[in-house]
């Protein structure tokens, strides 16, 4: 599914943000990504969601070498990746429904199906009564749920989430984790970047730790 070989990343002529990264994510796997702020988690995720190419090494996603994928083929690959951004990146002028519908509309899904799926998912994440609310009128937790719904609406093969439960209470966090688990059970490969040790402790999935640009696998008792 995803393979990193000796990957390094730097911005311009600056120091390497990521270095010597080796990683293999099997299809249908579930990982947590941890590490202190500034360790390079967001940069690492940006390689995974095809926002940038590595400055060295080989990144292979869905069997394709990122360095050689023609630009015209990136949209089709990106449609197989769902991303929950730490800052949500919701479009302020669109309603919750239209924000979540965006990936489907971009993919050319017929509008009647868009409405059906989006309403169902937003209702599932507890926003059935906020379908037409603009992001500015939603709380941080509600915005986060809209962002998560947008990331999973296309049933992606790879789901990346940057602090997806950072702004919600425990009850909603558990509910969202159930959503991720459900997608994982259906075959989606999941990686969640988090600072929340309780979230990790509640599950049996492996933890990858990024520190000073280097990635290590954290040994966990009974890890999957």
């Amino acid at each position: 599914m995803v393979r990193f070989e000796n990957v390094g990343l730097r911005y311009g002529l600056g120091p390497e943000i990521l270095r010597d990264i080796y990683l293999e994510l099997a299809p249908g796997s579930f990982h947590f990504l941890t590490g202190p702020s500034g360790a390079g988690k967001s940069s690492f995720l940006s390689l995974l969601y095809l926002s940038r190419r590595p400055t060295r090494g080989i990144v292979t996603i869905f069997g394709r070498d990122l360095a050689t994928i023609p630009r015209a083929e990136l949209p089709a690959l990106r449609r197989q990746i769902g991303v929950v951004f730490q800052d949500f990146r919701l479009l302020a002028h669109l309603s919750a429904l239209d924000n979540v519908a965006l990936p489907l509309r971009v993919a050319g899904v017929p509008e009647e199906k868009v409405q059906e799926h989006v309403v169902e998912l937003l209702t599932w994440v507890g926003l059935g009564d906020q379908l037409h609310a603009k992001p500015a009128t939603l709380s941080g937790g509600q915005q986060q749920r809209v962002a998560i719904a947008r990331a999973v609406i296309t049933r992606p093969r790879l789901l990346l989430a940057d602090e997806p439960t950072g702004n919600v209470d425990d009850r909603i966090a558990v509910r969202l984790m159930h959503l991720f688990e459900e997608l994982h059970r259906l075959g989606t490969t999941v990686m969640i970047a988090t600072h929340n040790p309780a979230l990790i402790a509640r599950s049996r999935h492996p933890e990858l730790r990024l520190e000073a640009g280097s990635l290590t696998r954290v040994a966990r008792l009974g890890a999957a």
Binding site: Y49, A72, P75, A76, R78, R79, R89, L102, P103, V106
Partner: peptide, 16 residues
């Protein structure tokens, strides 16, 4: 720019 960046990340083609 930000909205366009987001559209690209969710798989929008340039022609969209």
């Amino acid at each position: 720019q930000q909205a366009i960046g987001l559209l690209h990340l969710i798989g929008a083609e340039d022609r969209y």
